[in-house]
């Protein structure tokens, strides 16, 4: 198992900003200035560092995190058992579906795990059918039956 990607060099200010920006962002006219004030940074510095963290892919996104199920849609975890020799081709096919919100390789016979997000519950079954047709592989669907806990934060140190 060789995890991809190396840690990125972050200074103490970057780490403080990442932690603060995971705590929720104010709904006021000048929110970047408000976050900066809590960290002793001016607004321009917050915007510059945030753009840089996104550019360097330390942050994958910054903005509202939508819970599509509360908006009439659905999220479903799904997996494929992809033949090793065909992995790159199948990954490209799966990633091309806009319904695929994220996709990870995992070390298991089921070696490709992705999350489908669709605007309607019926969209999930439709997306699964189209992915099966495009890949020629059976999709294992793992819809959540109960959510015990979700917390998207990580301590940046």
């Amino acid at each position: 198992m060789r995890p991809e990607g190396e840690p990125v060099a972050l200074d103490a200010t970057d780490r403080a900003l990442i932690n603060a920006l995971q705590e929720g962002f104010p709904l006021c006219d000048e929110p970047y200035a408000a976050v900066g004030a809590s960290l002793g940074l001016d607004e321009a510095e917050v915007l510059r560092r945030l753009a840089d963290l996104l550019e360097r892919k330390v942050l994958t996104r910054f903005g509202p995190l939508y819970q599509i199920e509360k908006l009439g849609g659905a999220f479903v975890l799904a997996a494929l058992k992809v033949p090793e020799a065909d992995f790159e081709r199948i990954a490209a096919i799966v990633n091309a579906f806009p319904e695929v919100a994220h996709n990870y390789r995992r070390e298991h016979a089921l070696n490709m795990w992705f999350v489908l997000a669709t605007e309607t519950a019926a969209g999930i079954a439709d997306a699964i059918r189209r992915i099966e047709a495009a890949t020629g592989l059976a999709v294992f669907a793992f819809p959540k039956e109960r959510e015990y806990f979700v917390e998207l934060k990580l301590d940046a140190g």
């Binding site: 920006l21 995971q22 939508y66």
Partner: peptide, 17 residues
């Protein structure tokens, strides 16, 4: 319908390998 407004970190970049 919004869990929160904020940043989503890349685990690897933060050293969670």
């Amino acid at each position: 319908a919004i869990r929160r407004i904020g940043a989503v970190p890349n685990h690897y970049a933060l050293g969670y390998r």
